[in-house]
Simulated assay, not measured.
Amino acid sequence: MEKAKEFVRHVLLVKFKAETAPDHVEQIIKDYSNLVNLVESLKSWHMAKDAKIINLHESFTHVFELTFEDAKGSAAYMVHPAHLEFHEKNWPHIEKAIAIEYKSTPFCT
């Protein structure tokens, strides 16, 4: 059996600060989504609003899921100038965040 590709996923739950205007939040999201065009190792970018942790009300407003081909790609993203610039510019608008990174593991029965 051929081995399945084991992508690295980076999931980020975010709560934007209340004083950050909705149109500014939308611009931050557009800028964030554009990183997929600027960072070669970032293979896909997805988001959703009103993120919830089941049975735990933490009031996160957005969830983002980034996919990398491998751990080296994720590491390259973390130090990429476009990511660092985005982070420095927009981190002041974040009230809280949780990041989870994992390598997808194929499961066969």
Score class of each variant (00 low, 15 high):
M1D: 10
E2G: 08
V8Y: 03
H10T: 09
H10N: 13
V11A: 13
L12N: 10
L13C: 13
V14I: 15
V14A: 04
P22F: 03
D23W: 10
H24I: 10
H24L: 11
V25Q: 15
V25P: 09
Q27T: 12
Q27P: 07
I28E: 02
D31R: 07
S33P: 01
V36Q: 13
N37H: 13
V39Q: 02
E40A: 11
S41N: 05
L42F: 02
L42S: 07
L42K: 04
S44W: 03
W45D: 02
H46A: 10
M47N: 09
A51I: 05
H57T: 13
F60C: 09
F60L: 10
T61P: 01
H62C: 06
F64H: 09
E65P: 06
L66G: 01
T67Q: 13
E69N: 14
K72M: 06
S74R: 13
A75H: 03
A75N: 10
Y77D: 00
Y77E: 00
Y77N: 01
M78N: 12
V79L: 11
H80C: 03
A82E: 09
A82T: 02
H83T: 03
L84V: 14
H87F: 11
E88Y: 07
N90L: 05
W91V: 13
W91L: 13
H93L: 03
K96C: 12
E101N: 15
Y102D: 05
K103N: 01
K103T: 14
S104E: 15
S104N: 14
P106W: 07
F107T: 14
T109H: 14
